[in-house]
Amino acid sequence: MTDAQNPPAPAPAPAADDADDAGGGGRPVADGPIVEGRGLTVHFYKRVGSRRRTVHALDDFDIAVGPGETVGLVGESGCGKSTAGRALLGAVRPTAGRVLFQGEDVTDLSRARWRAMRKHVQMIFQDPYSALNPKRKIGESVAEPYLVHTRLRGRELESAVIELLEMVGLPAGAAGKYPHAFSGGQRQRAVIARALALRPGFVVADEATSALDVSIQAQIVNLMVELQAEFGLSYLFISHNLAVIRHISDRVAIMYLGRLVEIGARSDIYENATHPYTRALLSSVPVPDPASRTAHIPLTGDLPSPMDPPKGCRFNTRCPVAVDQCFTDRPPLEERSPGHSVACWVN
């Protein structure tokens, strides 16, 4: 499988020649993951009064995203989803752990080398308005990656930009307009166009559709799925929306307070949820169908502070099935069936 001794991967992630539908989940496909995080840990330090406190944003986080695969990442606000995404892209330096890109350890790359990596890994954020410079025309924003990383100029550049805009469903005339002239959905299309300009192999989409109205969210989700098939993209799709995650993901990872509590194929998570937190989370989502009632496994209390996470299993303060061991020992993430791992002493 993964082989750290792999020769440095050749640059542009080639478009998947066989756009293979790995179909509903399982493991990363053939030649190993495109991106991998091993034991990723990120601590932030924060002053509280006169004391320096440690924020345990991400703790011993393992993940691998295969070529052409979408891994969904869910969990409550503040559980470390964005931090995980940023660590995988080198946007935040991990306190511990490694990041591998196509088998190559890139954790300690210099800033300059990471900048070169930007060709292969990209991020799409929630708020397309802040992602686009309001003072620059859409065309200029979309052209920027070409100006920084390639020699495309003049006519060629112009037609490359128009091609990109068309690819995401924007009219060619959009290039000459400013972001404020567009709706949220159109701006998100422009952000996607820019992210895909250099044909990255791996894209972290962080709440990329969360601010959009549902009818527009559907358009953008569909667009992302189409582009994935066309270019063999891999996504880490971060969202708090469990229905969107179900729709788009091959595999799904559930986080709680900086730790992975369950990971598996889509069907493992949605049809055979095992961790009590996953179950509670799924049972809380209101189903858009009055004929089918939401299950309601109520969780009492709020998320504990990541500055003071509970000992043992971090979910123990809210868990309906916790036993003594859960308050003392950390449950390891164990594989229960091929590809389906759970960190729980009880279930």
């Binding site: 229905a243 179900r246 729709h247 989502v285 169908d289």
Partner: peptide
């Protein structure tokens, strides 16, 4: 609108 909403309870 209804056709735009993904379902959490089925694929």
């Amino acid at each position: 609108l209804l056709r735009s909403v993904p379902r959490v309870d089925r694929d």
